[in-house]
């Protein structure tokens, strides 16, 4: 009897917790979440649009030349 009850309770709590353990963490409302996301992407987009510094182009070209010369590096 007591065992049955225990099983039922366990099943109920499993059903309630179907959304992983995240369900116990507080969550932001969707409006705030969107606002944070928008600001994050705006900041990131600005960084993505910065011109690629010459050093990276030079680096890859340099390696290409070296590679053709001696096949190492």
């Amino acid at each position: 009897m007591t065992v049955d009850k225990g099983n039922k309770l366990a099943r109920v709590s499993l059903d309630n917790g179907s959304g992983e353990k995240l369900a116990t963490d507080p969550k932001l409302d969707s409006g705030s979440q969107k606002r944070i996301g928008d600001q994050l992407r705006a900041m990131y987009d600005e960084l993505m649009q910065q011109p690629v510094p010459d050093r990276f182009r030079d680096l890859l070209e340099q390696l290409d030349k070296n590679g053709q010369k001696d096949g190492s590096q």
């Binding site: 900041m43 990131y44 960084l47 993505m48 649009q49 910065q50 690629v52 990276f56 182009r57 890859l60 070209e61 390696l63 290409d64 070296n66 590679g67 053709q68 096949g71 190492s72 590096q73």
Partner: peptide, 27 residues
């Protein structure tokens, strides 16, 4: 021996630089 980057790969690496930089700067 043949470890030099192929042109396609070099382009792919170069194309990845803006997102790598954005991540690195933000990090």
């Amino acid at each position: 021996m043949t470890s030099e980057p192929e042109p396609e790969l070099r382009e792919a690496l170069l194309a990845a630089v803006p997102s790598l930089r954005a991540f690195a700067i933000s990090l």
